[in-house]
Amino acid sequence: MKASSFRYIFPEPFNSLKRNSWMSVAAIVTMAITLLLCGVFWLLVMNINANATMMESQVEVKVFLADDATEADSISLKTNLESLAGVASVTFVSKEEGLDTLIARFGDKDRILAALGSNPLPDSYTVTATEPEDVVQIAEAAETMDKVQAVRYGQGTVENLFATLNWIRTIGVGIMVLLSVSAVLLISMTIRMTVIARREEIRVMKYVGASNWFIRWPFLLEGMFIGFLGALIALAIVLFSYDKLIDYMVQNLIFLTYISLKDVIFQTSAVMLFGGIVLGALGSIIPMRRFLKA
């Protein structure tokens, strides 16, 4: 097919959209809802990922020394900890510093001391890992070392977060697939109406020897255009509401981190518009296969 022939093809999708206006609106709305949910899940997953990364980077191992540990014990423990694979840094935290941190977190020094009598905290080492996956290994190795009273790290927190993330992803993907299928089906029904409305023209085109692509393009373009319009609506809703939602979240869930829209606007727009066009094209291929056999 000649590229210049598109001048004959381009007006057709618009004629069809006018002819089947209600069906087209339904298809566009379904497409918009599908892509809106896809967009929301996409941003949700991105935000959860960002939080997971942040929490991972904060994971550190606290190694508490036994009360009877001498200075020499302490130094040899430090050397042992530093020799472990995956250890980035080992920092000594004296029992006084430990108490200061506690006070900084919970307030009033005098009242805490009064309640506790004396400082009950042991000296400790804060070990950070180069890779979050190494944390468990490091903790287990540290537990077997001499003069170690206890080892603490964010057991379970990160694992739970990842498990939750995977669940959200699975459910999200499932819902997106179902919605995509329904959007594709609705588009294919719309295109089928167009095929039926134009069956006389299709017959004449075949009789006079129009190439298959010349016959197909108008239907393909119609599907792609419906997908594109749906994506545009969904994208507009996402872009207008995301900042407002994040403002609300920031005020109410302070301890989480949020991705700002300008960091993801390009990716999100590209994914949604491309997704809409691809789903629209898929929707128009189905009726074409059935009706336009040579």
Binding site: S4, S5, Y8, E201, V208, G209, A210, S211, F214
Partner: peptide, 11 residues
């Protein structure tokens, strides 16, 4: 004209 458009003749 439709028959000519269909075989992609110039306008």
């Amino acid at each position: 004209a439709f028959a000519m458009k269909a075989i992609e003749e110039p306008w």
